[in-house]
Nucleic acid binder design. Structure first.
Lengths: 236, 236
DNA sequence: TATAAACTCCCCATTAATGGGGAGGCTGGC
DNA sequence: GCCAGCCTCCCCATTAATGGGGAGTTTATA
C-alpha cells in the first residue's frame, strides 16, 4: 500500500517530538477516524504523549490519575497482542464511570490499542479510536490492523530515538569481573557466596562492587544492581 | 502478499510448541535462506528455542554460555529496532572467535535479528540468517524486513499463548505499597529514607519488603528488586 | 454484609553490608 | 618504556539489613 509507505517515510523524517503530534493528526485524517494517540508511560506516570484527544480530556485524565483505572492501560500492560477495547474488562464501577466520562469528552466508543515495549522496561501504547458500531469497527481493524502495528512500531522507534538515545550512550562500561559480581548479586547471592562462586576473596569482591557502584553512580549495592539491569548491562 | 498471509495463518493454527519448529523450517525454505531462528528468554531465565541451526551448534552455544558473549543477544537487548548483524559490535576478540566458530557450524555470515518484548520482561529474538555478500543481503532485508517483523510478532504471540499459563501468570502481583517500596529501593534509598518518603515507619516498610520478597521468591532485598525490575513490575 | 487483602505499628537478637584506608602483580596500548 | 585499568589481597569500626515473632484498622469486593 503506497499510502502507508508514504506515511511511514514522513514519520521517519521527523526531527523533533512535536512532529509526532502532526503525524497523529495526519493518520487520523487518512483513516477517517475520530482519534489517533501515541503515548508512553512509566510506573510513575505519563512521560510523553502525542495525539488528537482534546487537551481538556488529557488534563482531566492526568489530574484524576486515570492511568491506574483505565482498562486500556491496565489490560495492555499484561498483554502482548493488540486489543480491541471490547475485549477488555470494563466490569468494575470505576471503569464504567471512566468510560462514560471519556465519551463525554469526545472519545469514540470503539478503540484498538497496540502495546509496544522497548528496552529497559519502556512501554508505549498506540491507539486508534472511533465512534461507530461493532461491525464497522471489526471490519476496519481486519483491514488495517497490521498496518497500524507497523505504524505503532515506527512511532516508538522515533520516540526512542529522541528520548533514550542519549541515555543509553551514557551508560558506563563495567569490567568483566564487575559484571559477574553484579550478576551474582542480582541473583540474590550474598557477598560471601558470590565471592565463593567467583573463586576470589570476599574482600576482592567488595572492590568490584565498589568500583561498579562508582561507575554506575549508585549509592548502594541494590541501586547499582538496579542500574546495571535497567541499562541492560546484565541479564539475570 | 498472499504467501505471507498463508504462512501467518498456518502459524496461528499451531497448537503446540513443536509446530513452531516446523514453521521456522517452512520459512527458511520459503525465503530460500540458510536459517530461521526464534528463541526467547524470560525474566526467570528459562529459555525456549525453535530454529534451523544444527543441534550441535545449539548445544555448543548453551554449553559455552555464549548468551553472554553473542553480540546479537547483547546488542538486541538494548535496542528496539531490528538489526542487521553488520551494525553490531564485533570488535572484541571473544566476539570474533565466537563468530568464526558459528560459521564453522554452518551459520551464515549475514543476519537480521528482530527483538520482541512481551509482558513481564519477556524477551525474544527472531533471526533470519544467510550466507551471501553484503549487497544481496541488504536487498533481501529491504524487500522482506517488514514482513519478517510481522512474522516475528506472530511467533511471539504464539509462544506467549503456550507459555503464558505457566511462566508469565506465575509472576506475582505486588500491592501498590509493595511496588512503591521496591521502587524506592531500586532508586537506592535506604530503608529509613524510603520509609520517610512513603510517610510510614521503617517497621512498616520492612513488612512490605518482606512481603514482596516472599511473593517474588527472592532471598534478599537486592534479589527482590532485581526480579521486580526484570519482571517489569517496576521501572526506575 | 462477610471476608480477604492491604495497610499500619512494634520488639529482640543476629548477621551482613559499608566506608575508608593501603598495596602488589598483570596486561594492553601510546 | 610507561601509564591506565584491571585483578587480587587485607584491616578496623560502624551502620544497615534480616528473621521471626504479634496485632489492630481500613478498604474493596464477592
Amino acid at each position: 500500500m503506497k499510502t502507508l509507505e508514504y506515511l511511514i517515510e514522513e514519520l521517519q523524517r521527523a526531527e523533533e517530538l512535536a512532529h509526532l503530534q502532526t503525524a497523529t493528526e495526519r493518520l487520523r485524517d487518512h483513516y477517517g477516524i475520530s482519534h489517533v494517540v501515541y503515548h508512553w508511560v512509566n510506573s510513575v506516570g505519563e512521560r510523553f504523549g502525542a495525539g488528537t484527544y482534546s487537551s481538556e480530556w488529557v488534563d482531566r485524565y492526568l489530574e484524576k490519575g486515570y492511568l491506574r483505572i483505565d482498562p486500556v492501560i491496565v489490560g495492555c500492560f499484561q498483554r502482548f497482542s493488540p486489543v480491541d477495547w471490547k475485549q477488555l474488562d470494563w466490569s468494575s464501577r470505576a471503569a464504567q464511570e471512566f468510560f462514560r466520562e471519556a465519551i463525554g469528552y469526545g472519545v469514540g466508543n470503539q478503540g484498538y490499542t497496540i502495546p509496544v515495549r522497548g528496552p529497559s522496561g519502556q512501554f508505549a501504547l498506540f491507539t486508534a479510536n472511533h465512534d461507530c458500531n461493532d461491525d464497522t469497527w471489526t471490519r476496519f481493524i481486519a483491514a488495517n490492523g497490521r498496518d497500524l502495528m507497523i505504524i505503532a512500531h515506527e512511532f516508538n522507534r522515533k520516540a526512542l530515538e529522541f528520548e533514550s538515545a542519549s541515555a543509553l550512550l551514557r551508560t558506563p562500561a563495567l569490567s568483566p569481573r564487575e559484571l559477574s559480581a553484579m550478576t551474582y548479586l542480582a541473583k540474590g547471592y550474598s557477598r560471601a557466596r558470590a565471592a565463593e562462586e567467583m573463586e576470589i576473596s570476599e574482600h576482592t569482591l567488595r572492590v568490584y562492587i565498589e568500583a561498579a557502584r562508582h561507575k554506575l553512580g549508585a549509592v548502594n549495592t541494590t541501586h547499582a544492581v538496579a542500574r546495571a539491569l535497567s541499562a541492560g548491562l546484565i541479564i539475570v
